[in-house]
Write a protein that binds this DNA or RNA. Structure first.
Lengths: 219, 219, 219, 219
DNA sequence: AATGAATGAGCCTTCATTCAT
DNA sequence: GATGAATGAAGGCTCATTCAT
């Protein structure tokens, strides 16, 4: 008996590892096929396990997806938090650049799957909760970014910060969407990014030299 | 056309009427249930016809949807063409207001269905064509709007018009998407519209009085 | 167009025939394997049709069974109604003999399946309705039989007719049950039938010559 | 028995205790959910042990149930033996009253589970053995009761005692069955009990005063 | 032209039992 | 003795599309 330990820490770790294994396999399948088209059979095969083995850890396809998507939110939040010590406009620039990079790589991420999940499930009461959470998470991240700049006096928006945040959010969603369906090249993500930067500057810091492009924009 | 046969005009007309009947029935079902969730059985029932009857006119669910969505593009183009004699900025305002109205009413239109179709089918080679067409149609409409203003000298963009057009397109897609999944109220469509107007002014007509809001914005 | 007929009678008939075909196939499977053990796959195979073909007519296994069992009730009722013009005691005798015959042949009927369905589903709210219906149907049939004899003055029960009816019902259920699990020979159905007859006579027609066995009993 | 090993008595006892623990847990689950619906997972959880732990003591769900049901038979036999010194008719009354009480409380006992097990498994060769045992146990108990009364001269049945015993057994099974599926109130167990008593008296002690109801019936 | 019954591959999920640790 | 993660066959059901009538 290894009985000394009341909770076998080792097993816990292993369990987590397996959970993670399955999750990653599911992630690969979702990315490859999309949410609707991914079948549990695919996920089971990709994970190299059995049906029972997968269902032992996740109740169904949706739970698998939900857990997977939770990570994306967390990362997005972290991306927005990052710039604690940074100058506000630079923090915004960094955040946008980060989103740009994600959008450019949308095909390899879960974003398309999330968009699919949300759009397809728009009539299902049950998915509403996730939808709300996503909205709050993304919106909150952007708003915090703008508000801290406003409080620092760097941003002097003539329009309420909330409205600007919502607008940025819409734009980002649109950029992702376009990138997903039309491909990043066709929609010239870089150009769009520059336009957005300029526009944002004009409402956040009205009157400042337009040369900002040289200062705060990427590349 | 097999036009050699002297098909009676009446029959042609009747055929078109039937096609239209079915199409409208399909439209109602798609709006009500979404693309994936709509079954041919639903459409057959809504049309008051039989399976055979529907398949006689449309090869499958997808064709039905494609024909339906063709109309939306045509309307969207018309919306952009409209302002022939109008002042450029007002034409832009009108176009945006039009999109705003559509977004606010997204639930009752085919837009959600289109977004769903595009997102879900992003992996299917076959849907690429439609995707490209949609992109060109929407982008073209916006670009024409902006370019005519630039050619008239009213707009003096410091950024290439194409980039601005793409950005506007992204924003509109995002606004639609958000409206669909989160609901028009939650995302304060009106506020977003105002922010977009301001932003757009600042890149299209840099240096002009910010009071434009009073002139060119809706409400 | 055969358009003259608003309702194609022929098709209706054919549909009924198919429904019946499937029902009979299901009946054979249920009898052979029991309710739980019968799979839709079995029924589909036995019916010589496809899954879709069967589901076109019946929503699921339960509906199939319920429709099947409806017939049994109807027959049971008819069995009880039969003796309109007959003398009360003879009507009772006929009814009992009928039940005896059914019990003896239980293995080849649906009764075991019904018992299984009721017992297994005793916790399921949904099956309660059927259970109630069955109870009322069987009880009603027996009670009517006894009551008409009482009203005719032939039966002079010292115990309320309802109580006797319930007792008879219990006995019949028990006889069926025993016949199903132990086999008709082992439980000597004939002997039991005679005992029941005697007992019933003594409470329905107290004081009459015990020789009734010769008059009213079967064989 | 591998009895050669000097297994410490304590361990043997502990083993029995564990077996009993598991058995009782299984009993609770069976009563709560029924035989088919009870899963090994439920039993494992209820017992507070592991799958392996349970399978170590019982080979499968069926063994668990079989051991459990063995007790019921033993108790039933004891119920019938009880009345050694009692007057025959009173012993019968006691037995019947006992069964009535059990039937009234059927929901809380294993009887429904047994009925389910027998009915569902009627096609399985393997369950036949148990079925036979049960039959013999119950039948034997009743027959002994009646025969001892007959040998004492108290009962003067005009019908063979075996037939009466089988009939009583059928009735009891039916009463249980009805109680299980329809509920004890709906079938007025008390009334049925009285009817059965009267009937039984008339065949066991023909010619005696019908006032027996006052003497030998419960309540 | 029109009907609508029929097809059948494919989907998700459950659960008794085993066996490496 | 104990554990509990893992197995995988089997079950019920759906739905786009076809084709005999």
């Amino acid at each position: 008996m290894k009985g000394a330990h009341p909770l076998p820490k080792v097993s816990e770790t292993r369990k987590d590892a397996v959970r993670n294994d399955i999750l990653e396999a599911a992630g690969r399948v979702f990315k490859r096929k999309g949410y609707e088209a991914a079948s549990m059979k695919d996920i089971v095969a990709e994970s190299g396990r059995s049906f029972g083995g997968v269902y032992l850890y996740y109740a169904n396809k949706e739970q698998l997806f939900l857990e997977l998507i939770g990570r994306v939110y967390r990362e997005m939040n972290e991306s927005a938090e990052g710039g604690e010590g940074t100058a506000p406009w630079e923090a915004v620039g960094r955040f946008l650049r980060d989103q740009l990079a994600r959008a450019a790589d949308a095909d390899n991420g879960l974003a398309p799957v999330l968009y699919e999940y949300l759009i397809v499930g728009r009539k299902e009461e049950r998915r509403m909760k996730l939808i709300g959470e996503r909205h709050d998470a993304v919106f909150g991240a952007i708003e915090r970014l703008l508000r801290s700049g406003a409080e620092a006096g760097t941003f002097r928006p003539t329009i309420p910060v909330e409205a600007i945040a919502l607008t940025v959010m819409s734009f980002l969603d649109g950029m992702f969407f376009e990138s997903i369906v039309s491909g990043p090249e066709r929609i010239r993500l870089d150009d769009q990014f520059r336009v957005l930067s300029d526009m944002l500057r004009s409402v956040l810091m009205p009157g400042e030299a337009s040369a900002v492009t040289e200062e705060g924009n990427p590349e």
